[in-house]
Write a protein that binds this DNA or RNA. Structure first.
Length: 355
DNA sequence: CACGCGTGGAA
DNA sequence: TTTCCAAGCGT
């Protein structure tokens, strides 16, 4: 394979996207490296998440916790609350674990080798390669969804993902240059994000237009092939919103493992085809008539919102009351935020009623 | 290795 | 409205 990285890097020098954690290619070529903590933070946030969604969270996290030492010393609940809304909450739990490992086992400095990075919590093959190359300019090959797509098209590969992934990795490694490792990694991902897009790829302005086998074959837009996924089922459930007469809210911290693990939430029943009512307090519950709808990765959820007013004191069977002035709905994951937004209020209108 | 795991934007 | 999907990881 002829060395095509030069063309791509020349394209990147002109077209590099601007991101809060990124060092401009001009500065990068002059030897400037970004803060490994920032690169690691951004890469974890970017896992299965768009750049647009990440920017605001990146700014928030690096403002509150400017160094890995600050993050390692943070309270778990504060980190989970700050992550609320970004999704895939295991990332937040592993982010904190990883910060503590870096501080306790690595003297507060991120390791610069792929193999050692790979041992860190929440750091897999992609993130290890991204941090090694972008933060430390070490030769490593990133293989994310963008690179998979670019490689499948460059070689006109019609075998479906994820099975063909090892083959795509081999091609990706062949393309990876010895110099400018970080810039190259970002360049190939930028290419996938802006030119070699999933739909309507802009082959006409692609720096790899000429050597691209799929463009020649006219198959670029239909690659990469993927094994079909089954459709998402609908699950039902009851969610319980109890309000104490002093204004306190009944909330619970969900178990570490599983859906919305470690996140603050209103208590609820099981979520299934036929959920069993499971109120967290033995009291009179009122069906609000509202239903919160939310779609997770693998199912649609409809939660019937039950409400109750209780006296102070009241001991719930599970969960705990949080004082009104200490409760911020921004700390809730989006599914629960939707519940909060639907709770009957004076200004609620009949139009909000679920059908 | 297949699956569980969020969310919001685009088409 | 529905589907697809975005810089994956852990089990």
């Amino acid at each position: 394979m002829r060395d095509l990285s030069e063309e791509l890097l020349a394209w990147y020098d002109v077209n590099a996207r601007t991101m809060p954690w990124r060092v401009d290619p001009v500065d990068s070529k002059a030897g400037k490296r970004p803060d490994p903590y920032f690169i690691w933070m951004s890469e974890v946030m970017l896992q299965q998440t768009t750049v647009a969604a990440v920017k605001e969270y990146f700014r928030k996290f690096t403002t509150i916790w400017p160094t890995v030492h600050d993050l390692a010393a943070a309270e778990d609940a504060d980190v989970m609350a700050a992550w609320a809304g970004l999704g895939y909450y295991a990332r937040a739990r592993n982010l904190l674990k990883c910060a503590r490992v870096v501080v306790n086992d690595h003297g507060g400095a991120f390791p610069d080798s792929y193999d050692t990075l790979l041992t860190l919590p929440g750091v897999g093959p992609y993130t290890a390669a991204a941090v090694a190359s972008i933060a430390f300019n070490r030769k490593a090959t990133v293989l994310d969804g963008n690179v998979e797509r670019v490689m499948a098209r460059m070689h006109d590969i019609h075998d479906p993902l994820p099975g063909v992934k090892p083959v795509l990795m081999q091609y990706a490694e062949t393309f990876t240059p010895n110099g400018r490792a970080g810039d190259y990694a970002q360049a190939v991902m930028d290419l996938g994000a802006t030119i070699c897009t999933p739909k309507n790829p802009a082959c006409g302005i692609c720096p790899w237009r000429d050597p691209c086998a799929a463009r020649v074959a006219g198959t670029a837009a239909e690659l990469p092939k993927k094994t079909p996924k089954k459709k998402t089922p609908i699950r039902l459930g009851y969610v319980y919103v109890a309000r104490r007469d002093d204004g306190a809210w009944l909330l619970e911290t969900r178990p570490e493992k599983g859906l919305l693990g470690g996140m603050l939430a209103f208590p609820s029943s099981d979520w299934s085809d036929d959920p069993t009512p499971d109120p967290p307090i033995d009291t009179e519950w009122i069906d609000s008539g509202y239903e919160a709808r939310h779609t997770f990765t693998h199912f649609h959820l409809r939660l019937k919102i039950m409400t109750a007013d209780v006296a102070n004191p009241t001991s719930p069977d599970r969960g705990h009351f949080v004082n009104h002035n200490e409760f911020s709905p921004t700390a809730l994951p989006t599914a629960m935020r939707k519940v909060f937004d639907l709770i009957p209020r004076r200004d609620a209108t009949i139009e909000n009623k679920a059908r």
